[in-house]
Design a protein around this nucleic acid. Structure first.
Length: 336
DNA sequence: CGTATTTGACCGCG
DNA sequence: CGCGGTCAAATACG
């Protein structure tokens, strides 16, 4: 873009508008780069604290162990080298960040043993990093983090807890959205699933590929008529294939499923399948679900509120939505 | 041998 | 101080 801008500037006949667009795009790029480096303060609901000027916490956070743009070695080893005040700042900053993470819960019923395939998958791999007995809870709570944490700095986390007597019902609390790209595996038969173990501390395994998830979601979303066609993105601008991970696009649903939606500002993400080969994961927010046009913005979480420039194309984009959105549209829907 | 899970230690917060 | 959450060494897995 800088090169384009330079070309434009050196061309006497170039239009100022084009230059302006290019400049804005370049600035946006820097913004996004900074976004990935900075701590995520409040991703929830697309609302961000823009009142407070950047403080030194921002600077400290650039070295926070949990937000490595290009992760290196053990964060802990860095800790020991640091001054105490720095470490304290870091810790408080990290916990602040953790608190601000979007958080949502859903109850999920898992296939009881008999059918081996078709367990739950959200297009991401989770790695267990802890288990805890919770006061007053019959069964322990399992802690999972995204396996792409180290490779892509994805901070998404979930807690899985069996509730009640039914060993197939779990409560899953998600914390933080994925910033990594979803796993894309072959379309062939899903691998066999691990069964929950006797102690009830097991979780739902994620082994289906994303296309199967897409299929599952479409099945689920049949509850909403015309939903699939509604998911088609109308376009007019830039080629969809030029979309980057953090690019922003918006679209609207022709149908209005307002009777089914009952969750406000529900955080969720969408997996974008473009030509069934390139899959992208976007954080999303629902903006306006009372009007006839059901607007959904897919964008970088940090630029949700200024999502004015819609990126679109002559193509349409089919969007596969993962569980949280299913929860919205079909709160009682069970995946088998 | 690299990756995932288990599990007691550890730690911040209320 | 106790609870929920995380770490990391040991262990299991493949």
């Amino acid at each position: 873009m800088a090169k384009q801008l330079k070309m434009n500037l050196s061309t006497p006949s170039s239009s100022p508008e084009v230059c302006d667009i290019l400049v804005n795009k370049i600035i946006d790029s820097y913004d996004r780069a900074l976004t990935m480096v900075k701590p995520v303060d409040a991703m929830q609901g697309g609302y961000r604290d823009t009142i407070n000027p950047p403080t030194d916490s921002t600077l400290v956070a650039n070295r926070a162990p949990e937000s490595p743009p290009s992760p290196i070695g053990s964060p802990r080893s860095q800790d020991s080298d640091m001054e105490f005040r720095d470490r304290d700042k870091k810790i408080s900053d990290a916990s602040k960040k953790r608190k601000a993470m979007p958080r949502w819960t859903k109850q999920v019923q898992v296939n009881p043993g008999s059918v081996s395939e078709g367990s739950l998958d959200d297009g991401h791999n989770w790695r267990k990093y802890g288990q805890k007995d919770i006061l007053g809870a019959k069964y322990p709570r399992g802690y999972y983090r995204c396996t792409r944490r180290s490779s892509q700095g994805c901070l998404a986390t979930k807690q899985v807890q069996r509730i009640g007597d039914n060993p197939t019902i779990f409560e899953i609390t998600y914390r933080g959205r994925h910033t990594c790209t979803p796993r894309i595996s072959s379309k062939s038969a899903p691998e066999k699933q691990k069964e929950p173990n006797i102690t009830g501390k097991d979780h739902i395994n994620n082994n289906l590929n994303i296309l199967d998830v897409h299929h599952q979601n479409q099945q689920a979303l049949l509850l909403v008529s015309n939903f699939q066609t509604g998911l088609r993105v109308e376009t007019d601008d830039i080629d969809a294939k030029n979309l980057n991970f953090f690019d922003e696009l918006s679209f609207s649903f022709p149908s209005s499923p307002n009777n089914i939606i009952n969750v406000e500002n529900y955080p969720f993400s969408a997996n974008c399948l473009i030509d069934e080969t390139l899959a992208l994961n976007f954080p999303c927010t629902l903006t306006d679900y009372y009007t006839e046009n059901f607007d959904v913005h897919i964008s970088d979480q940090e630029i949700l509120e200024k999502s004015s420039t819609a990126v679109s194309s002559a193509n349409s984009i089919n969007v596969a939505l993962d569980y949280p959105l299913i929860s919205i549209f079909a709160p009682d829907y069970h995946i088998w």
